[in-house]
C-alpha cells in the first residue's frame, strides 16, 4: 500500500456537489420509511379535508370545490414543513451531536460549500415530497389544471426561502429547545393563517398583513393559481421576487453564522 507515491487528487470542481452526494448517501439508507409517510399525508388530506371538511363547505371557496381549493395550499405547506424539519434538528445535530460539519470543515470546503450542499439536499427532500403529494392528489382527481407542474419550481423556491434562514437559526441557537420554539411560533401560525385552509383575505386587517409577510402565503397563492388555472392575487414576478429575497437573505445569513461557528 502506498500512501504517497500516487498522483495527488486536486480540489473538487464544485465542492457543494460533493457535500450533496454525502447527504444523499445517508438518505439512501432511510428513504424507504419516508416514502410511506409522504404517500400517507396526501391520502389522509384528501379523505379528511376533501370529503370530510369539504362536505360542510358546500358552496366551495371562490366558486371552487373545497378539495380542489385546499390541495395547492397543503402542497405548499407540506414543502415548507419538510424544508424546515430538515433544516432544524439535522443542522443542529451536525454541529452538536455528530460534528459532521466539523469534519467537512477540516476538508477543503468553505462554509458556503457546506451550506449550499446541505441546502441542496433539503430542496431535494422538499421537492420530492411535494411531487408525491401532487401525484396522489391528482390520482384522486383533485388537481384540475396541467399548469400544476409549475408548482414544483414554486415549492423549490419556497423551500429555499424557509430553509436558508432556518439553517442560520439552527447554527446560532445553543440548545435544541429553541428549535421546538420555531415550530410553535413560526411553522404552526404560518400553516394556519397563510391562506392554506381559508383565504387570508378573510382575516382581520393586522393579521392579514402578517399573513402576506410570510413566505408561505406567496407560494400558496402561486400554487393555487397553477393548480386551478386562475390568475394569482399578486403579480407572479412580485411573488417570486419576495420569495427570492427570503432565499438570498437567508442564505447569506446562514453562511455567515456557519462561518462564525466553524472558524474560531
Amino acid at each position: 500500500m502506498s500512501v504517497t507515491q500516487r498522483a495527488r487528487p486536486g480540489l473538487p470542481r464544485v465542492p457543494a456537489v460533493a457535500v450533496l452526494a454525502y447527504h444523499l448517501t445517508g438518505y439512501r439508507r432511510t428513504w424507504r420509511s419516508g416514502v410511506f409517510s409522504s404517500f400517507l399525508l396526501p391520502t389522509l388530506t384528501v379523505l379528511g379535508f376533501g370529503f370530510g371538511v369539504g362536505g360542510y363547505v358546500d358552496q366551495g371557496v371562490d366558486g371552487v370545490p373545497y378539495l380542489e381549493w385546499i390541495v395547492p395550499g397543503l402542497l405548499a405547506s407540506t414543502a415548507m414543513q419538510v424544508a424546515i424539519a430538515e433544516s432544524t434538528f439535522p443542522v443542529f445535530g451536525n454541529f452538536q451531536w455528530t460534528r459532521t460539519y466539523t469534519a467537512q470543515n477540516a476538508a477543503p470546503l468553505r462554509a458556503g460549500d457546506i451550506v449550499a450542499g446541505h441546502l441542496a439536499f433539503v430542496l431535494v427532500r422538499a421537492v420530492t415530497a411535494s411531487a408525491v403529494f401532487l401525484l396522489v392528489t391528482a390520482l384522486f382527481g383533485a388537481v384540475v389544471s396541467v399548469w400544476a407542474v409549475l408548482t414544483l419550481p414554486v415549492v423549490a423556491l419556497l423551500g429555499l426561502a424557509v430553509a436558508a434562514p432556518t439553517f442560520g437559526y439552527a447554527a446560532a441557537v445553543s440548545s435544541d429547545s429553541w428549535l421546538a420554539m420555531l415550530f410553535r411560533f413560526a411553522v404552526i401560525p404560518m400553516t394556519l393563517f397563510a391562506g392554506v385552509f381559508f383565504p387570508a383575505e378573510s382575516l382581520p386587517d393586522g393579521l392579514r398583513h402578517l399573513a402576506y409577510a410570510t413566505p408561505l402565503w406567496h407560494a400558496v397563492d402561486l400554487c393555487r393559481a397553477a393548480t386551478l388555472g386562475v390568475p394569482p392575487h399578486w403579480s407572479v414576478a412580485g411573488h417570486l421576487l419576495y420569495l427570492a429575497v427570503w432565499a438570498v437573505g437567508g442564505a447569506a445569513l446562514a453562511v455567515r453564522l456557519f462561518r462564525r461557528r466553524l472558524v474560531v
Binding site: 487528487p9 486536486g10 480540489l11 473538487p12 470542481r13 465542492p15 460533493a18 457535500v19 452526494a21 454525502y22 448517501t25 445517508g26 439508507r29 469534519a103 467537512q104 476538508a107 477543503p108 470546503l109
Partner: peptide, 15 residues
C-alpha cells in the same frame, strides 16, 4: 453510514 461510505463520501470533498 457504513465504514466504507465514511471514506468514499469524504474522499469526494477532495475531488
Amino acid at each position: 453510514l457504513t465504514v466504507r461510505e465514511n471514506l468514499t463520501t469524504y474522499a469526494r470533498y477532495f475531488g
